[in-house]
Amino acid sequence: MSWKAVELQIAIPRTQDAGKIQEQMQQQGRIDQNQLAESLVKEELNKRKKVLEQEASEQLKNDQKNKEVNNHDSHNVKQETKQQEHHHKHPYLGNKVDLSR
């Protein structure tokens, strides 16, 4: 088969188009991989943020519980000391007594 001049006018631009299409298809795979890698990095960062936020909220809860327990304990200690002071007071020992008669 021989190529006629008219057929060559059509065939040559089509081969250039085919080359461009092949190059675009090869680059599309690289672009897809890059986008996938970026999305995975974003997901990982989001997961890390969530874990850190959960740890921070748990730490706050624990701190609040500790404060409540300490406040409750200190209140109990104050009540116990008051009760002990009340038990240690004798009705007339240690008080001033007037002996002048």
Rank of each mutant, 00 (worst) to 15 (best):
M25G: 04
N66I: 06
N95F: 09
P13A: 00
E58T: 12
G94C: 00
S39A: 14
H87E: 06
V69I: 11
L36C: 05
A37S: 01
E68H: 02
N76H: 10
K89M: 10
I21S: 11
Q16N: 06
E7T: 08
K50L: 14
S74R: 15
L60T: 14
K49I: 12
T81G: 03
S2E: 07
V69F: 11
L40A: 03
G29R: 06
I12S: 02
P13I: 01
L8A: 01
R48M: 13
W3G: 12
Y92K: 06
D32R: 00
E85S: 08
Q24W: 04
G19T: 12
K47T: 07
D73T: 13
V69N: 12
V69G: 05
L93Q: 10
P91E: 00
D17A: 00
K96S: 08
K61A: 14
Q64L: 09
E38C: 05
K78V: 07
I21N: 12
K82L: 09
R14E: 14
N34M: 13
H88T: 04
E68F: 02
W3E: 13
K78Y: 07
Q9W: 07
E43C: 06
Q26P: 03
D73Y: 13
L45S: 12
Q54T: 02
G94K: 00
K65V: 14
K20F: 02
K61L: 15
E68P: 00
K82N: 11
A5F: 13
S39G: 05
V97D: 01
D63C: 03
N34Y: 11
L60D: 15
A5W: 13
V41K: 11
L99C: 01
Q33G: 06
E53G: 08
L52R: 04
I12R: 03
I21V: 09
N71C: 03
Q35R: 00
Q79G: 02
A37T: 01
A11S: 07
V41F: 07
E53M: 13
G94M: 00
S2C: 01
K89H: 08
V41R: 07
Q79T: 07
V6N: 03
E53N: 11
R30S: 07
E7F: 05
E53T: 11
A5M: 12
N62H: 15
M25L: 08
Q79P: 02
V51H: 10
R48T: 12
Q59V: 06
G29L: 12
L93E: 13
M25P: 02
Q35Y: 01
I12M: 04
Q27E: 03
E58D: 14
V41Q: 11
K89P: 01
K42P: 01
H86E: 05
N95Y: 11
K67D: 08
H87K: 07
I21E: 09
A37G: 02
Q28K: 04
I12E: 01
Q59Y: 10
L45N: 14
K50M: 15
K65F: 15
D17T: 02
N76T: 12
V41S: 10
T15S: 14
T15L: 14
M25E: 08
R30E: 10
D32V: 00
Q35C: 02
Q83K: 06
H75T: 11
E44S: 10
E53K: 13
Y92V: 09
S39H: 11
R48Y: 12
D17N: 03
E23H: 04
D73I: 12
Q27V: 00
